[in-house]
């Protein structure tokens, strides 16, 4: 179920999601928050089993904190995604997979990044991406609307209209749209120690 969307622009990144949590043919919640903050520079949009997704995000948030304390500068967006992918891969290989998909969007010292990972642990960097049951519909909007060189505001509009379109035709998605954008200016600069 769910529709989530991530878009990369030159000015930053955008995540968007619907707000429906389904329990079979029943709508379990109409106000679900599917975009989770990792810190001021990175957010994750989740699709699938909420408990599995939240467990992975919490584990990675803790690991990120430990690593940045140890080495003195934060994990990049890709490194953060890799941590989620590692656990997902282990889960798949031990026949206890985490039933979740993730879009990780954030800004770091090397710029803005949007990455996707899933229960197999596969990891890919994308310009725009959507997952969840509504994603075929959302991709229709993204494929026709995405342009290179978009600014953050244009990407916000595109992301929410993609989710909006999915909510119209996918019974697993609905009840409103969340949009989050992270501008490049949020990135932590790595302080070069003399």
């Amino acid at each position: 179920m769910t529709t989530i969307v991530g878009i990369l622009t030159k000015d930053g990144v955008v995540l968007s999601s619907d707000k429906r949590a389904s329990k079979g043919f029943f709508i379990g919640s109409k106000v679900t928050q599917k975009i989770l903050k990792i810190d001021d520079t990175i957010a994750v949009a989740i699709a699938g089993q909420v408990s599995d997704a939240e467990y992975l995000v919490n584990a990675v948030r803790a690991e990120r904190t430990l690593v940045s304390l140890q080495r003195g500068y934060p994990l990049s967006v890709r490194e953060t995604t890799k941590l989620i992918a590692n656990i997902a891969y282990q889960g798949m290989k031990s026949y206890q997979p985490y039933f979740a998909e993730f879009i990780i969007a954030g800004v770091d010292a090397s710029g803005p990044h949007v990455l996707e990972t899933d229960m197999s642990g596969a990891l890919s960097a994308e310009n725009f991406v959507s997952t969840g049951s509504g994603s075929p519909v959302a991709y229709g909007v993204l494929e026709s609307g995405y342009k290179e060189g978009m600014n953050l505001e244009q990407a916000r509009v595109l992301a929410s209209s993609a989710v909006q379109a999915a909510m119209e035709r996918d019974p697993g998605s609905g009840n409103g749209v969340d949009v989050v954008s992270i501008p490049n200016s949020a990135a932590n600069e790595i302080i070069v120690r003399a």
């Binding site: 140890q70 080495r71 994990l75 490194e79 890799k82 990891l123």
Partner: peptide, 11 residues
């Protein structure tokens, strides 16, 4: 393998 990045000297 863990982070997809080269290790930093401090770590």
């Amino acid at each position: 393998l863990t982070f997809d990045s080269p290790i930093d000297v401090k770590t």
